[in-house]
Design a protein around this nucleic acid. Structure first.
Lengths: 152, 152
DNA sequence: GTAGATGCAAAACATTTGCATCAGT
DNA sequence: ACTGATGCAAATGTTTTGCATCTAC
């Protein structure tokens, strides 16, 4: 589980001559413990600080940057001015999409990847070699829709 | 053509008790003349400044913000730290997607919207009322692929 | 002891805001 | 005159950097 994934990350770091320092470990643990939540750097910093009060914000940023370079994390931007981070799926092409609620702002992941056909069509028509995609749906989540017969 | 669209924007502004000032007009003209280019606020500012050197950056930002509120422009974020702006299609639900080249950074629009089925599936399964979507493909564009038998 | 990692403060960058002034009705 | 719009400079918020210090091998 968690330890295992940490182990694999440590190995990947070592392979590239980087160290898994206590600060990096704390940062990664926070990410592992909050995988559903699409935390921003500041969010992560505050949570790491609870357990390791001496960590600096710059270190968190540097860790996130490094992990993104190593393709362990993926930096995403939902358009609200802060970057958020999530683990890349470990086995290649397992894409997922995001549902963002316009009412409450919650971000949900959905695990399907129904885009095979679409990708094929686009790739053929525009001669564009697709490496990745990002699909975001904006709308109203179930809770907000039922909450108050919302007129959306 | 351009004048016509400007006319319609002027009307929309007036309907909401806003004015089409010279600064706003210059800003909108730059957007109309560079519709393909996904300009950032700074880009727009520099181009407006060529013709109207006295305009301030804040005014450009305020204009872009206003036009976004009025649903004339759409503010998008490709994840590079700056917001970009494009006109909303005038007849409602005509979505388009973006192809971003990982080599040269160019952004191309594609006009299809093949997502009807996908939307239906997602909407049914997750009880999420979809209002809009954003689909971005990252990959290698035709020029970059041919340019040098690129190994991507 | 050397190379990488850290914390802090300062810098950089995009964007927003406060405020005095200006323009159009 | 009144309302909204502007330019400028200052403020904000996020992220990056410079640098002296620290840590692990």
């Amino acid at each position: 589980m968690e330890e295992e994934r940490l182990e694999r990350i440590r190995d990947e770091l070592h392979r590239q001559n980087y160290k898994l320092t206590p600060q990096r470990e704390s940062t990664i643990r926070v990410l592992l413990e909050n995988e559903e939540d699409h935390l921003s750097a500041e969010d992560i910093y505050l949570r790491v600080k609870e357990k390791s009060p001496d960590i600096g914000l710059a270190t968190v940023y540097r860790t996130l940057e490094l992990m993104s370079e190593l393709h362990i994390l993926h930096k995403i931007n939902f358009g609200d001015g802060v970057a958020r981070y999530e683990f890349k799926s470990e086995k290649g092409e397992h894409h997922h999409h995001h549902l963002i609620c316009l009412d409450c702002g919650k971000v949900n992941e959905i695990q399907e990847d129904h885009l095979g056909e679409v990708e094929r069509a686009v790739s053929d028509k525009y001669h564009f070699i697709i490496k990745d995609h990002r699909l975001i749906f904006h709308g109203i989540c179930e809770e907000c829709a039922t909450k108050e017969g919302n007129s959306h």
